[in-house]
Design a protein around this nucleic acid. Structure first.
Lengths: 189, 189
DNA sequence: CTAGATTCGGACTGACCACTCCGTTTGTCA
DNA sequence: TGACAAACGGAGTGGTCAGTCCGAATCTAG
């Protein structure tokens, strides 16, 4: 699916470098950072950026997809854990924590929410599946209320992430707010 | 505080109209809508917009502040209600619902979160006070867990609003996600 | 080592946008 | 009603940014 590309050595190096730098720049400057800024930070010309990613949107998408894929991998790794409840809430906290620190992360999640089911971001599907598995196991173990599905979980997850991103820097407040949301996910007693 | 300005009749009319239209345009086009677009929609020249609001940022701020003030008024009205728990959760749902429909609304909230305590948005303080009152009464009535304060509430509220805004259009999903968050605010049993 | 293809760099283009400036219009007050 | 200040409209200005183009540099196969 991602083959048929014997990329030249320097080209491959640059592509990876651009992705890396773009991630960092978008994270701290926001997605409105200019392409030139990214090119400069990566030590390449603008033309190089546009050759690898024909559009700024394409670059954003690539960055987000990479995030999503990484997230999905972490989720899959956790899905084997002994305690499903712990795995579920640990992953939830992990995502929110990372999003809180990086704007690009939250945007990636937003993207995932929008695009689950669309071809747009292939990474989103993987995340969705992994999350669904985590959710189902946690529900079967009685750690999570069973009147919610993946869509609801995504909505809550995205909300918690976006909220954390901008709910002030105070980690204590963040932690307590996160606790509230997670308690809401537990079965009513 | 907002006096010393005997505004000419047409000027006052235009100012109000611009605010109104800007609200609508920002809501559906996003805050990156151009000033010219707003001027056109309001049926005035660009110069007029800039005379009333010397900066695009000033215009945004005015729109957001108006939202915040309206919200604060609703909150105050509810704070007299007989059932404090009902008042609290009703207001919570109201805000989230409105934010879900209008991007500008969610942005206004975000603004409020950032600026509570800052001079920037005067409206935010009023909302903060009203919310704090609503929260305290609900806690005293045992309808809301008492290990959270205003900052946590704001964080959760903003998160829920942003999440709702983009959690797909499905109202059922939105309602269930909102339910999760609200359950999290209730006392643990 | 060399030739040819691939990739690079960054000046350049066109579109857009916030904001200014000033000649024209409109409201107000006597 | 007339005169003057206040407000209006929108062409113009400067700046930014996504995306293009092509001569120069770099890689790789033979």
């Amino acid at each position: 699916m991602t083959d048929t590309k014997p990329l030249r050595a320097d080209a491959a190096r640059n592509r990876a470098r651009i992705l890396d730098v773009a991630d960092a720049v978008f994270a701290e400057r926001g997605t409105s950072a200019s392409t030139e800024e990214i090119a400069k930070a990566a030590g390449v010309g603008i033309g190089t950026v546009f050759r690898h990613f024909p559009t700024k949107e394409a670059l954003l998408e690539a960055v987000f997809t990479a995030h999503l894929r990484r997230l999905a991998e972490q989720a899959e790794a956790l899905s084997e854990a002994k305690d499903p409840g712990e795995a579920f809430f640990g992953f939830f906290a992990l995502i929110v924590e990372q999003s809180g620190a990086k704007r690009a992360f939250a945007n990636a999640l937003t993207d995932a929410g929008v695009d689950v089911g669309r071809a747009h971001a292939e990474g989103a599907a993987g995340l969705g599946e992994a999350l669904a598995l985590l959710l189902r196991r946690a529900q079967e173990a009685g750690a999570v209320r069973d009147d919610i599905g993946l869509p609801e979980l995504m909505a809550v997850l995205i909300g918690a992430s976006l909220g954390a991103e901008q709910a002030g820097a105070d980690p204590l407040v963040r932690a307590r707010a996160l606790g509230v949301v997670m308690d809401g996910l537990r079965p009513r007693r």
